[in-house]
Design a protein around this nucleic acid. Structure first.
Lengths: 203, 203
DNA sequence: AGCTGGCTATGTCAAGCGTCATAGTCTAGC
DNA sequence: GCTAGACTATGACGCTTGACATAGCCAGCT
């Protein structure tokens, strides 16, 4: 049903975005990188690059939230934190610190498409929509952490703040690891976050 | 001595990088944005865009580390944390959540220059150098925080981890605020970080 | 057999990019 | 006054990009 080619393009776009960023990821490179046919782009993504990025974004979001949600529900908040961080560590190390988080890339860059913006003004609505999607992914991850903390007895406001801290610091650390080409920051941050969470849980 | 035009270009490049990212920041736009002459680019930056980015990067680093170092030395680690976060909050709000951190942009993207890379391989050395500079900036900020914590009695290893947590989570939060177009995450994270630091300081 | 519709192949288009080269302007020092 | 050198203006070159158009392929159905 949903074409295999299409899925490969979305996954390839997510990967390239996590390495190069949004603007440095061209559709031509996506098809080169995935061995998919260039002619199919217009077919599978009639709205063009914007649509491909959108799909790659929610794809990347689900790829994390799926396992995370499952693990958090079966083994609790701290195990979820460990898994979340381990997952990023794996992404970093497997790619020799070249790949990062595509969602972060969208949140940090501004997608500009010269082709569709002949008039001077950049398409504000398109950019807003991408940010909305990125925000949605972050919110989703945060919600998973939030729910786990609530279930383990943390007060609502505190749980919200802690969830924000976990997601934000992990994302930031991934970028720092990329810059340092080392996983050391991830270890440091994980250690401190575990301390914070375990001391926030009621004894 | 150092030309005024040159300084404006560097500052403008840093600003644009913080809004659009590295690859979406073109030299032509830098000169448009700063009202500086296009012809001067080659004069002030003989190594081209790469050099402009490098300069913008260390410029942005110093712009933060200067005030931060001063404040931390006179009023301590927690005041430094507050100032660090307040500074980013200001950047976000003044730009209506359009500007972020140029250093983070370099850490998240991969700078590709089609003009100099006619051969298939992207210039790996250039990219490595940019990452080194970004890593240096992060390390510098971290060092300031680390020193303050040490001075206030925190053990070395712990101080290193806490400094990493502070920098990483702040950077990540800035990106999240941009996605959400809200400063709420910054507030949440600041609150939790203050708790962490104050409970880590010896009573 | 014939058609039809999902998919693929390939080329063109306008626009932007970074770089380079050439020529012009301004100013400080003699 | 003049000249040297720092700076600025402008255009060309070769390239890539996203979008679009045209044409071809190849199942599955009638």
């Amino acid at each position: 049903m949903t074409s295999d080619t299409r899925a490969k393009m979305v996954a390839g776009a997510a990967d390239l975005m996590s390495r190069r960023g949004v603007n440095a990821t061209s559709m031509r490179e996506v098809v080169r990188h995935t061995g998919t046919p260039r002619g199919s782009i217009g077919h599978h993504f009639p709205r063009g690059k914007q649509q491909l990025i959108e799909d790659a974004l929610v794809f990347a979001g689900k790829q994390v939230s799926g396992p995370l949600e499952h693990l958090v529900q079966s083994r609790g908040a701290i195990a979820g934190l460990r898994a979340f961080i381990a997952l990023w560590r794996q992404t970093l190390e497997k790619s020799k610190f070249q790949a990062g988080c595509p969602v972060l890339a969208v949140a940090v860059e501004q997608y500009v498409n010269d082709a569709t913006e002949k008039d001077g003004a950049p398409d504000e609505a398109a950019q807003r929509h991408l940010l909305d999607l990125a925000d949605g992914v972050f919110a989703d991850w945060q919600r998973i952490m939030f729910t786990a903390l609530r279930r383990e007895g943390v007060a609502p406001a505190r749980a919200r703040r802690l969830a924000a801290l976990v997601i934000a610091s992990t994302e930031g650390t991934v970028a720092m690891c990329r810059a340092a080409r080392s996983a050391q920051p991830l270890d440091d941050v994980r250690q401190e976050l575990e301390l914070v969470l375990s001391s926030a849980l009621p004894k």
